[in-house]
Nucleic acid binder design. Structure first.
Length: 309
DNA sequence: AGTTGCACCTGGCTGC
DNA sequence: TGCAGCCAGGTGCAAC
């Protein structure tokens, strides 16, 4: 589910139930996701109050009242679900792990983590492919952490609570600097999280179509010799921001039945102009082209070879 | 240093 | 109906 708009949608869904709540218990239903869970993961979270929930790129970061940060990434197939549980008779009474909430029937296949929170709320983390992961990081060291140190700019600027954002704006000038001298394709560069952080396969395809730029074009061609931005660079920066904002407004894209934390579906997938639209007529009114699928860097690219140059 | 290809894992869909 | 093959929102790492 998760590119920037989907992760931001998840953040907004979890914020009201997580922030201000105390972690009553954590149940790990397996020892690892993409990586093993940190040592004593559940014990270190138990009793901690969640102070804030922020997003950086495609990461969620829950700040705790002891200065630690719970870092969460959804990988390809991760999602959260909010449920309820019975606070009586759980871990504080020595119940075995997994016995702390009544409604076992509420568990679904691939629910790997359950956070039992104060206020009788449970948050389930589900992830069939297990490309997601969770870590605990000392808050003060977050910006220098290997996961975050090399991340590129936030395309929408700093988000609420983003503690290590850099002063950067996504505009033509910034893009021109980032692209200067690069021979790689626009598609590949825009997917590179060290350049712009948060874009994924869907929104790169969509932004390039809106801009009328070929995903195969070399990124360096958007920068003038003196380093200034071409009109195309300025337009691309605008279209990236536009498509991300529209997708967030729509609650993200719900592919393969993925849902938001509150159970509702995002609906931006109905607004895809080229992603997964191979063989369909180009949606640009003045264009007679057909959406094509090619493979770049081992991943599908959808674009119109007629109007994207 | 910049790029490319592959590995990680499960499930759903397509076509024979 | 069964099953092999391909595809999927992301990232890290090894190799050129």
């Amino acid at each position: 589910m998760p590119e920037l708009p989907e992760v931001e949608t998840v953040r907004r869904g979890l914020e009201p139930v997580m922030v201000g709540a105390t972690v009553v218990a954590v149940e790990l239903r397996r020892a690892d996701l993409r990586f093993p869970f940190p040592e004593n993961f559940a014990a270190r979270l138990k009793g901690r109050r969640i102070v804030s929930l922020e997003r950086r790129a495609k990461y969620l970061r829950a700040w705790l009242d002891d200065g630690m940060v719970l870092v969460m990434h959804l990988g390809m197939s991760g999602s959260f679900r909010i449920g309820r549980h019975d606070v009586h008779g759980h871990a504080s009474h020595g119940a075995s792990p997994g016995a702390f909430y009544h409604e076992r029937s509420a568990l679904k296949a691939h629910d790997h983590v359950v956070f039992a929170l104060s206020g009788d709320v449970s948050v389930f983390y589900n992830d069939p492919r297990r490309f997601g992961f969770m870590l605990l990081v000392e808050g003060a060291t977050l910006p220098a952490h290997p996961l975050f140190r090399h991340l590129g700019i936030e395309p929408l600027g700093s988000t609420r609570g983003d503690s290590d954002h850099r002063e950067s704006t996504l505009d033509g000038t910034t893009l021109a600097k980032l692209f200067a001298g690069r021979s790689t394709s626009l598609k590949t560069v825009l997917l590179d999280q060290t350049v712009i952080a948060g874009l994924g396969n869907i929104y790169v395809c969509e932004a390039l179509h809106r801009t009328g730029l070929s995903p195969r074009r070399s990124a360096g061609t958007l920068t003038h010799r003196d380093g200034s931005p071409s009109a195309r660079a300025t337009r691309l920066a605008e279209m990236i921001r536009e498509v991300l904002l529209e997708a967030i407004s729509a609650g993200g894209s719900s592919l393969r039945d993925h849902r938001q934390a509150d159970g509702s579906m995002g609906y931006f997938q109905h607004s895809f102009r080229v992603y997964d639209q191979k063989g369909c007529p180009c949606p640009k009114i003045t264009c007679s082209g057909t959406v094509a699928r090619i493979v770049q860097g081992g991943r599908s690219t959808f674009y119109c070879p007629v109007c994207q140059r």
